[in-house]
């Protein structure tokens, strides 16, 4: 919680899919160095917000990140600007090994093209940068407790481990802003606690701003600095986690379903 300068600003985002209003004038500001949760019932528009930030959808309104107008940038430019993400429905390269998947996160940081790749071990080759990236990828999977799975194809792994591979891949891109879409889905309580620790660690030690979508209210309470609540594509509350949970509108729209 180093500062309150917003590193990410969503201003009046609106998006329609046919007749459905997926987002209606949603504005969110995330201060640099914070862990910001987005919560809300299914279909509230949480993933849609992340997809707008990553450039998969083009909403109306404005998205500013670190002084840049994100809506004018192509999706593949995000990692260079310092944005990485994980996906709700896992978007890994299934036939590839865990390490190759994680190393793909370093794509934008490496320079080598066809020639330097083909000349791997020569003086012009890219062996050094490849090795450094590999070491970093190994470090990332070890931090997430899947160090022994490096050579396995990801399609062999259980859902929870695939989620970890996605997070490792995002870490290797060395982001300033990390977008996590339900990273703890399919994990038990102790696994969730471990992963929450990792997210915290990345936030505190590497000063990565985190925007996380999470259903588990306990996790949200523990790790969030700030929380935005969405319902039917509208923002219905925002603030510190305790404050938001007390909000009557939130209890009705969201918590009401879970705490009868």
């Amino acid at each position: 919680m180093s500062s309150s300068v917003p590193i990410l600003e969503l201003a009046e985002l609106s998006l329609r899919f046919g007749g459905i209003k997926a987002l209606q004038a949603v504005s969110i500001g995330v201060a640099a160095g914070r862990i910001h949760s987005i919560i809300g019932p299914n279909g509230a528009g949480k993933s849609t917000v992340l997809n707008c930030i990553s450039g998969m959808y083009r909403p109306q309104g404005a998205i500013r990140f670190d002084g840049q107008d994100l809506l004018r940038r192509r999706p593949h430019e995000r990692p260079l600007l310092g944005i990485a993400r994980t996906f709700q429905n896992i978007a890994l390269f299934r036939e590839e090994s865990v390490l190759d998947n994680v190393m793909a996160g370093g794509h934008h940081r490496l320079k080598s093209g066809i020639l330097r790749g083909a000349l791997y071990w020569t003086r012009f080759g890219c062996r050094e940068e490849e090795r450094r990236l590999r070491d970093e990828a190994v470090e990332a999977i070890e931090l997430l407790g899947i160090g022994e799975l490096g050579e396995r194809p990801v399609s062999d792994l259980p859902f929870g481990d695939q989620k970890r591979v996605e997070l490792a891949r995002a870490m290797v891109s060395r982001p300033k802003l990390l977008l996590l879409d339900e990273p703890m889905a399919g994990m038990n309580d102790s696994e969730k606690a471990e992963l929450a620790q990792v997210v915290r660690k990345l936030n505190r030690e590497k000063h990565i701003t985190v925007v996380i979508i999470e259903h588990d209210v306990g996790v949200v309470r523990r790790i969030s600095d700030t929380v935005t609540v969405l319902d039917f594509g509208k923002k219905i509350a925002e603030g510190g986690p305790e404050e938001v949970m007390k909000d009557p509108a939130v209890r009705k729209a969201y918590l009401g379903e879970e705490e009868p």
Partner: peptide, 9 residues
């Protein structure tokens, strides 16, 4: 070599 480097990935 290409397969194991950046472009291969």
């Amino acid at each position: 070599n290409l397969l194991r480097t950046r472009m291969g990935r």
